[in-house]
Amino acid sequence: MNFKCKFKRQFLSGPYMVWIVGFILLPILMILYYGLTDSAGSFTLQNITAITEPIHMKALLLSLKLALLCTAVCLILAYPLAMILNGLHLKRQSFVVFIFMLPMWMNLMLRILAWQLLLSNNGIFNTVLESLGLAKVQLLNTSSAVVFGMVYDFLPFMILPIYNSMSRIGSDVIDAAKDLGANTLQVFLKIILPLTVSGVISGIIMVFVPALTSFVISDLLGGGKVLLIGNVIEQEFMQSMDWNMGSGLSIVLMVFVIASMAFMNAHGNEEGGAAVW
């Protein structure tokens, strides 16, 4: 390789490098700086330790609880769905995958706003309940509504990696297991389940992380009554204008995100997820 050629090729990655430095690296450094200083600019750990304040702790625990709940519901829904999908005839398969993906191409905000209307006191669900002579139910502005919105939003991210890992199991491997005497349940427990673990793990990461950090869904469907750590951080930045506190809490949240990803990655390689991104 001659030097000139090598240099020119590296030059091509220039715009991307600018993007990374300007919009990913620099903001992270700024968050680290703000998070570790006070308003006067001197070093402090106060913004980090602020997570132990009851209101912040409560928001963090609620976030963890709702994110776990959302992940669990997604997993319970997605695994059988992926199995059904995998069992379909090939032509129909791609169509059904397309149907699942369709909502993902619409703006998140739009979809959540639609749910806000549907779940509201005068929304379609309560109208139906009323016409049946039943009492109205408070749907909007509850934790359940937030979890529901998250599940609705993140379900495809659970289905696709599981479906991917499932579709990669050759039919002859299943046949071989049956041939060696395994019944349907044994085929599932000894072959299908172990071979889809990697897909399940990527699915969990891809649902749990955005669910943990989400604030738009809780904002719109929780109506300010469901305060997640994401909402707290947003308020610190937007309402209190306390960038130091917001950054400090962001660092704590980031640690949780990285820890959960590291934990999951340690329990299997992430092959299932790569196919989705």
């Binding site: 046949d175 071989a176 041939d179 395994a182 019944n183």
Partner: peptide, 19 residues
Amino acid sequence: PPNERKLNTVFQKYALFPH
């Protein structure tokens, strides 16, 4: 069904269990 038959198969692509 195959699991109740007293014969075994060697498949074209081996079909070993990768895990």
